[in-house]
Write a protein that binds this DNA or RNA. Structure first.
Length: 117
DNA sequence: AGTTTGACTGGAG
DNA sequence: CCTCCAGCCAAAC
C-alpha cells in the first residue's frame, strides 16, 4: 500500500513547503534533525533534497532555526561555517571528525527523554 | 526536450 | 573514518 506520494503538483508542493517550515520551527534549541526525517514527517520520504532546497532558498526560512538541520550523518551544510558556531552556541557538541554527535543531540519527538524538555 | 545540478541518502570498498 | 557511486527529484540550464 502506498503511504506517500512520489510526485507532487503545485498545491502539494506548497503544502510540503509549509509543513517543512513548521517542522523546522518546532526543533528545540540544543537539538538537531535531518533533511530525510523532515521529508518523511511531511509525507514525502524521497524528497530530502527538496527539504535542503527549501531551507536554502525559501525567504521564510531565514527567520527559522534552520541551523538545527544537518544531514543523516550529522554533517553541517556545505559553505555555511556559521552553522557549527550557532549549534555550539546552544550546547550541541561535535565529534573529532566535524560531525554532530547524533547519538546525543538528534531530536527524538517520540522518546520519553525528550518530552521532559 | 535533454542535461546538469545540488544545504540528500544508503551502501560498497 | 574516508571516498566513490547509484538512486533520487525539482529546478535551472
Amino acid at each position: 500500500m502506498k503511504d506517500h506520494f512520489v510526485k507532487m503538483d503545485i498545491e502539494q508542493a506548497q503544502m510540503f513547503q509549509h509543513d517543512v517550515l513548521s517542522i523546522v520551527k518546532a526543533i528545540p534549541s540544543g537539538r538537531v534533525t535531518t533533511y530525510g526525517y523532515i521529508a518523511t514527517l511531511a509525507g514525502y520520504p524521497s524528497h530530502a533534497r527538496m527539504v535542503g532546497r527549501i531551507l536554502r532558498y525559501a525567504p521564510e526560512a531565514i527567520s527559522l532555526p534552520c541551523h538545527r538541520v544537518v544531514n543523516a550523518v550529522g554533517r553541517t551544510a556545505p559553505g555555511w561555517g556559521q552553522q557549527r558556531i550557532l549549534l555550539e552556541g546552544e550546547g550541541v557538541m561535535f565529534k573529532p571528525n566535524g560531525h554532530v554527535d547524533m547519538k546525543q543531540f538528534l531530536w527524538n519527538p517520540e522518546s520519553m527523554i525528550d518530552k521532559e524538555q
